[in-house]
Computed example of a mutant assay.
Amino acid sequence: MTDAAALPAPLAEIREEFLELPERERLQLLLEFSRELPGLPPRYESAPGLLEAVEECQSPVRAFAEVDGDVVHFYATAPQEAPTTRGFASILAQGLSGLTTQQVLDVPDDFPLMIGLTRAVSPLRLNGMAGMLTRAKRQVREQLAA
């Protein structure tokens, strides 16, 4: 697993929030994150097709990393009835938004495994979060190349 020192401050803080809790309480924190998923800006709210489907997720999740100058904004949607997936989307929306493009590209691919939920949620669900992160990085690279 990657060294946590490689994490940008917002993701490091989220990781610490999880790791400070006993394992059994980490799911509760994930549920809290699910209630804090930022809403979409109006331009995406009225055209959700602009967000890319995340096929790795068991629930219908759509996400997009938008580059504005050198700053990344990560947007995602996930259904209320899928709190685990919604929590993962919220963690990434809160943890990636505001970072520079390079900081996002440098986020370790195994970040989903670093927050202490590997025994609390299924590998399939963690794979969904990894899929969101992979897409965000690819979308950033595509926008930088354009």
Rank of each mutant, 00 (worst) to 15 (best):
M1T: 11
M1Y: 02
T2C: 01
T2Y: 00
D3T: 02
A5S: 15
P8L: 09
A9V: 10
A9K: 11
P10F: 07
P10G: 10
R15E: 00
E16S: 14
E17L: 09
E17D: 14
L21P: 00
E23V: 10
R24N: 07
E25N: 13
L27Y: 12
L29R: 14
L29M: 13
L30M: 08
L30R: 04
L31M: 15
F33W: 15
S34G: 05
S34A: 15
E36C: 11
E36W: 01
L37Y: 00
P38W: 06
P38M: 04
G39K: 12
G39D: 14
G39R: 12
L40G: 08
L40C: 13
L40T: 03
L40R: 03
P41K: 12
P41T: 10
P42C: 11
P42M: 08
P42Q: 12
R43I: 09
S46N: 08
P48Y: 10
P48S: 07
G49E: 15
G49L: 14
L50M: 14
L50T: 03
L51K: 07
E52K: 14
E52T: 15
E52N: 06
E52Q: 14
V54A: 02
E56F: 02
C57K: 06
S59K: 10
V61R: 14
V61F: 09
V61K: 13
F64I: 09
A65N: 11
E66A: 12
D68Y: 05
G69W: 07
G69R: 13
G69I: 08
V71N: 04
F74K: 06
Y75G: 06
T77C: 06
T77S: 12
T77V: 14
T77D: 05
A82S: 15
A82W: 06
P83V: 13
T85W: 08
R86V: 12
G87C: 04
A89S: 13
S90H: 01
S90W: 01
I91K: 04
I91V: 15
L92W: 06
A93G: 07
Q94F: 08
Q94W: 11
L96S: 04
S97G: 10
S97A: 03
G98H: 08
T100F: 06
Q102R: 09
V104I: 11
V107E: 12
P108N: 12
P108S: 09
D109H: 13
D110T: 12
G116A: 05
L117K: 04
L117I: 09
A120S: 15
A120H: 02
V121H: 01
V121K: 07
V121D: 03
S122H: 06
S122V: 03
P123F: 07
P123W: 01
L124K: 14
R125F: 05
L126W: 07
G128A: 02
M129H: 05
G131C: 02
G131M: 02
G131T: 05
T134S: 11
T134P: 00
T134L: 09
R135C: 01
R135E: 11
A136D: 00
A136K: 09
A136S: 03
A136N: 05
K137E: 10
R138A: 12
R138W: 03
Q139C: 01
Q139M: 07
V140L: 10
V140R: 09
R141F: 00
R141P: 00
R141E: 15
E142L: 14
E142W: 03
E142S: 01
Q143L: 02
Q143D: 01
L144M: 15
A146R: 14
A146K: 09
A146T: 05
A146Q: 07
